Simulated assay, not measured.
Amino acid sequence: MISVLLPVRDAAAHLPACLDSLLAQTLADFEIVAVDDGSTDQGRTLALLQAYAARDARVRVQAAEHQGIASALNLAASQARGRYLARMDGDDVCHPERFALQAAALDASPELDAVGCLVRYGGDPQACGGYARHVDWLNTLRNHGQMRLGVFRDAPLAHPSAMFRTSSFHRLGGYRQGPFPEDYELWLRWLEAGARLGKVAETLLTWNDPPLRLSRTDPRYGQDSFHRLKAEYLARWLARHNQHHPVVWVVGAGRVTRRRVEHLQAHGIRVQAYLDIDPRKIGNHVGGIPVMHHRDLPPAGEAFVLSYVSNPGAPELIADFLNSRGYRQGLDYLQAG
């Protein structure tokens, strides 16, 4: 029923816990297609995979030259035999009921192309508060509508928690290699093409946060790469949904917001004004664009607002303010920070 796509590189320290959690699944009809993406640890990762394969025929191992995670995932998918494809990373651990519950969700809802689940943050929430807050936010997205709009804030599903229909993967396209995070690009592209996402409202994966995690060490996962990619898809979304296109009003006039807006401007989006609460900024012009007090926002229906403010608690306060002014998320405003 299920093929697990498991790309690994220099993962020997964490792999036993990952593989043990997969082999303990209550739904036993699965295979693990593990691709060693050119590990450099004197063969330890590959030997560990081969030892598991020798004990359990459901583990299939492919040794490959280092091409990156996108290529490793596509190689695994090309060899998969399951009706569903489940993602997993070598440093994460899943709950024994994960496959049973996600497969049941796909069986029950044929309109869904992929489902995720709630995840538990497996790092130090004090030392790495940003990741912990991301997981908290991620777990608030429970249905397709929330994830469809949430994708412009960040990836709406934890990648290793996802399970796809194999037919959807081939219809919508696999992973792309480029100067961007491959998982976020997949969600943006799939949702733009009309894919429907779901989420099992149970915590079925521990999403660990080791210091050498790719999102911490690879420049493709850096903020500039992330927002450049986002701007491409967001600009096309605005062209279809913003009745005032190409004009937007932007919440926040700080340097970080302006850098992100520059990526949008490269796609023809025009900023009417920045909205802020800092009296030192209000009344000024930034790049020829006025900075106005947020209370001077036009009535609902006369503007489309983008918010790039992502300080803890700020997105919720901004949404409350816009909602109180009659603005509707997805129709009159969008959070993109």
Rank of each mutant, 00 (worst) to 15 (best):
Y333L: 07
S39D: 14
E192M: 12
R295T: 15
A13K: 13
G252C: 10
R165D: 03
I318A: 04
T257M: 10
A195C: 06
Q329N: 07
I269M: 01
L306A: 04
V151H: 04
L85A: 06
A273G: 06
C18D: 06
L317W: 13
A303G: 11
P156N: 03
I32K: 00
P312E: 15
G198M: 07
A303R: 01
S39E: 13
A239V: 09
A34V: 13
A64S: 15
D332M: 06
A76Y: 04
Q42C: 06
V119Y: 00
D278M: 02
G145Q: 11
A24S: 06
H14S: 15
D20C: 12
L188S: 04
D37I: 10
A114E: 07
R9N: 07
V93L: 09
H66T: 11
R81M: 09
R44Y: 02
A195V: 06
Q42K: 05
A132R: 08
Q25N: 08
E202W: 09
L214S: 12
E316K: 14
Y233I: 00
E185K: 02
E185S: 04
S71M: 09
R165P: 01
D276F: 02
P7Y: 06
K230I: 05
I32S: 00
Q335A: 03
V305H: 05
F169C: 06
T217S: 12
R171H: 11
F304M: 04
R259G: 14
C128G: 01
G283I: 02
E232G: 03
P16V: 12
E111L: 00
L157E: 01
S21L: 05
R259K: 15
F180A: 07
G68F: 10
F30V: 03
G123M: 07
P315D: 10
P125D: 08
G252K: 04
D124I: 08
A103I: 03
A54L: 12
R328I: 14
Q126R: 09
A86E: 07
A314C: 08
P110I: 02
D29P: 10
P211D: 03
L85Q: 04
P125Y: 10
L234K: 00
F152H: 09
H66E: 14
Y84W: 15
E232T: 09
D10C: 09
E31F: 02
D10E: 13
P160F: 08
L101P: 00
D37G: 07
D92S: 10
D218N: 13
E202K: 14
L49A: 11
E316H: 14
D10H: 07
A273Q: 02
A336G: 00
F164L: 12
D20I: 08
T140C: 05
D20H: 15
D29C: 11
P315A: 08
P298C: 00
P125F: 10
R176M: 09
R142T: 15
H144V: 03
Y121S: 02
